[in-house]
């Protein structure tokens, strides 16, 4: 589902965020990306939908080239990839439903959409996605009046509205009360299990990673330091990811 080879990213002016990463992810996996902040997790995720332009290397998602593609082709791939962010990134002044509807932007006729007109099927799709995350009753509420956990669920609904093949989630629970971590991760897990979507989720909490992942990829200083099932994540390996003498 995701094929990454030789991915290298140099962020301006000269920070090497990723040094040649190779990774292959199969359909239906629930991959948790671990690592300290600055290890390259976010850059890696943002390369997969070209929010960050790789310096070198190739990426394919759902059989389509992400790297080397022109703008229309990149938009075509992005439609296939839902993304959930640490800060939710909702449009604060728009309603929950309108935020979810934005997930349809890659599909609807572009000119009417600029005037706020969306086909009925897309509206219904957005509403169904909001129901799926349990927030159908808050459809008309302005996004900035929702709690953090609710906002993140709206953001997940927006990603689902894209009918994606892959969902990327960049530290989706890091801005939330720890008590809400499992509710968000449970929703992501349900999407993975029930709809068979491929998930790539970055996390800094080791316990959460172990509880949800089918596969863990550990980043350290822009390189993959571990790649394997949660069961193989021994204390030695954890130290290799997080560094000596540090507890995650």
């Amino acid at each position: 589902m995701i094929e990454v080879t030789g991915l290298r990213v140099v962020l301006p002016p000269s920070t090497v965020a990723l040094h040649g990463v190779d990774l292959s992810i199969e359909r239906g996996e629930f991959v948790v990306v671990l690592g300290r902040s600055g290890a390259g997790k976010t850059t890696f995720l943002r390369c997969l939908n070209r929010l960050v332009d790789p310096t070198a290397g190739t990426i394919k998602v759902a059989g389509r080239a992400v790297t080397g593609a022109g703008a229309p082709a990149v938009r075509g791939v992005r439609r296939q990839i839902g993304m959930v962010f640490q800060q939710f990134n909702l449009v604060r002044r728009a309603s929950a439903l309108d935020n979810v509807l934005a997930g349809r932007l890659g599909y609807v006729p572009p000119v009417p959409s600029l005037f706020g007109s969306f086909p009925r099927a897309d509206r219904e799709r957005a509403r169904a996605c909001l129901d799926q995350v349990g927030l159908g009753h808050l459809a008309a509420r302005r996004a900035d009046t929702l709690s953090g956990g609710e906002q993140q669920r709206v953001a997940i609904a927006r990603a689902l509205a894209q009918r994606p093949a892959v969902i990327l989630a960049d530290e989706p629970t890091a801005s939330l009360d720890p008590a809400l971590t499992s509710s968000i991760m449970d929703i992501l897990k349900a999407i993975n299990v029930e709809q068979g979507l491929t998930l790539v989720v970055s996390q800094h909490q080791l316990e959460t990673a172990l509880a949800y992942a089918t596969r863990i990829v550990g980043f350290r200083e822009g390189r993959i330091a571990f790649d394997g099932p949660p069961a193989a994540l021994t204390p030695t390996v954890v130290r290799a990811i997080y560094g000596e003498g540090e507890t995650p």
Binding site: L51, N89, A102, G106
Partner: peptide, 21 residues
């Protein structure tokens, strides 16, 4: 830039990103 990233990530065009993000 957060909402702008989020709208961009849906596969929206530049104009749609302006309009919605």
């Amino acid at each position: 830039p957060g909402p702008v990233d989020a709208i961009t990530a849906t596969g929206a065009t530049r104009l749609q990103v302006l309009r919605f993000g």
